[in-house]
Design a protein around this nucleic acid. Structure first.
Lengths: 281, 281
DNA sequence: GGGCCGTGATACCGCACGGGTATTTATCGG
DNA sequence: CCGATAAATACCCGTGCGGTATCACGGCCC
């Protein structure tokens, strides 16, 4: 199976539409149809059920979509890591990825402590939305990440735990609940006029529901300040709040574990040092 | 990057010889030379240092060898898992891999218990040499495996611990040490005429050293019975020994942890049930 | 030191296959 | 029943992969 075929199939499986998939791939529709047919013939498996009006994935198709994405990520990782290992790419750098707006104090301390190490490499920090970090680690755009269980999946990575924390609800300043010492998740879910916001899924689409759509932490905090939403976040997100926001502990929300994660089989002195530094903080 | 290019590069990197690599790939040498040149040009990276007499890997080449193998395994896994998910492949089967000669009682109990589950799938058991299991799990030939830490690497897999055990030294029956209640690793290493055997590495080659070469457990036990070697193995390997062998505990050898491991992101009811069954034994 | 072997690179050729355009076919909606 | 939509089919062209023949160069042996 060639990566070209995999890319084609993944595009069709995601769009469920040959025309749009072809456009996305920058080729015409007929060659795409042929390529998929050929892939199905070579595998001996029907991947797509086409009625004249719609395209759906078969069971085997779903498997190939999931496995194919993983395989393409691995190929991309091989490409990127090889380029970066070239002498012309300069001294080795380290790309650390974390969720925008989270872990700022821990991150600052970590970067300082790491920079003090004798053989420290330069560290690029990549901030991204929720759910994107795993992808970046898998396809080689990042070397190491700070993740938060149970929100982020650490499946397939090597991991060290760095600490746990409770969660708080972020509310507009002056909201009645802000006088309380703590609240429950049930109370938060039932707050009139302050729905929990919706985050985009891995496919970039938003789930259905009442809450406003948000893409990053800034948007979220702004919406809360405006009294249009509230949100349950790890304590560390509630330490430095603007005056128009307030945090109240939610003891019955699940504990959040911060972990440092990196792809397995990483043979990088820099990653090892960074992880060691992080666990010693 | 196409998988064809990756396969070609991995072959050359492993053989460090264009002619042999071409033969292994079933193509002529000139197209292979060209393909590698083209790959280097497209990546903008020198992967191989060729003097007229020898081929060696550059730093970037080693990275691509490691990452490329992983990527090819992922592609192979996608292929195999897709074929097996096809309706024509019959009802879903489960392939369980473990080291030949190890864990026989635990394995028997597990298979019995699993077969009693209401939605049990048929289980194929694959026995293989040390160090091969990880490969089989990564490239999709197996769904789940029984591994032994610290011997087997569990990097990149999801894992549940099943138990720990000490280790014993297997000796020819009648050997003086067999009268002792326990021995030390140092004593075992120094046994005159009974060297520890050599196992093949991942590349199929044997490390240098005095011990005899062995490929599997049967060979090993036969060599020990013949008085040509001895070996330190987990207790469970010493429970059912032939009359011509004896086991003595080695308390200072590291504890062995048996784990059940499976590829991350597995969405298989059968694997989940098997893992649950295993943890409950 | 000269010839030879081993080995990777180059030159050149043919064909398979990937991609494009034009057209057909089938199905759903009105 | 017709038109719109979307996938499949027909056909053509060019790229690029693979093969054979050959070259260039380094080491080795006598």
């Amino acid at each position: 199976m060639e990566t070209r075929e995999l890319r084609y199939f993944v595009a069709v499986a995601e769009e469920l539409h040959f025309g749009r998939a072809a456009e996305r791939l920058g080729i015409a529709q007929p060659p795409l149809s042929r390529a998929i047919q050929q892939l199905e013939r070579r595998l001996g498996v029907t991947l797509l059920e086409r009625t004249r009006r719609s395209v759906t994935l078969t069971e085997a198709g779903s498997v190939l979509l999931r496995e194919g994405r993983a395989a393409l990520d691995a190929v991309d990782a091989a490409d990127r890591r090889t380029r970066r290992a070239a002498p012309a790419a300069g001294p080795p750098k380290l790309v650390l990825v974390t969720k925008a707006g989270a872990e700022s104090e821990r991150l600052a301390k970590l970067l300082d402590a790491y920079a003090a190490e004798p053989d420290a490499a330069e560290v690029d920090v990549l901030l991204c939305g929720p759910g994107e970090q795993e992808r970046l680690l898998r396809d080689g755009r990042a070397d190491v990440g700070l993740l938060h269980r149970p929100f982020d999946s650490t499946a397939g990575f090597d991991v060290e735990e760095l600490g746990t924390q409770g969660q708080v609800v972020i509310l507009p300043a002056g909201h009645p609940l802000t006088t309380r010492p703590h609240v429950t998740t049930a109370e938060v879910a039932a707050l009139p006029g302050l729905p929990l916001p919706r985050w985009p899924g891995p496919d970039g689409r938003y789930p259905d529901g009442p809450g406003p759509k948000v893409r990053d932490n800034t948007q979220l905090l702004q919406l809360i300040a405006l009294g249009r939403a509230c949100s349950i976040l790890p304590e560390s997100a509630g330490t430095y709040l603007a005056d128009d926001l307030a945090a109240v502990p939610v003891p019955d929300a699940p504990q959040v574990t911060t972990v440092i994660a990196w792809p397995p089989h990483t043979h990088s002195r820099a990653v090892a040092t960074l992880v060691r530094t992080a666990t010693r903080l």
